[in-house]
């Protein structure tokens, strides 16, 4: 399947959307995760709350995923 330049740029845009949101998520989860582990080290009952906060930033990557997906649908 040969791609024209326009499709290539769209594909790149999708990649950037994915990579950027993934990095943002990683950074946010690093911070929250460290805090959650810290709290859990003292009190295991905080596991439930910890996991809620820990995974909240994941939504960022899902946005990236959705945008990338919409972009890719332009190519075909």
């Amino acid at each position: 399947m040969a791609l024209d330049i326009g499709s290539g740029i769209v594909a790149l845009a999708a990649a950037i959307a994915m990579a950027g949101s993934a990095m943002a998520t990683a950074w946010a989860e690093k911070v929250v995760g460290a805090a959650a582990v810290g709290a859990m080290a003292e009190n295991e009952a905080l596991f439930g709350k910890g996991i809620v906060f820990m995974v909240l930033p994941e939504t960022i990557v899902l946005f990236g995923f959705a945008i990338a997906f919409l972009l890719l649908s332009k190519i075909t």
Partner: peptide, 12 residues
Amino acid sequence: LANMVSYARLAG
């Protein structure tokens, strides 16, 4: 809307 998109993890 963000919450709904969040369920995409099921497919993901």
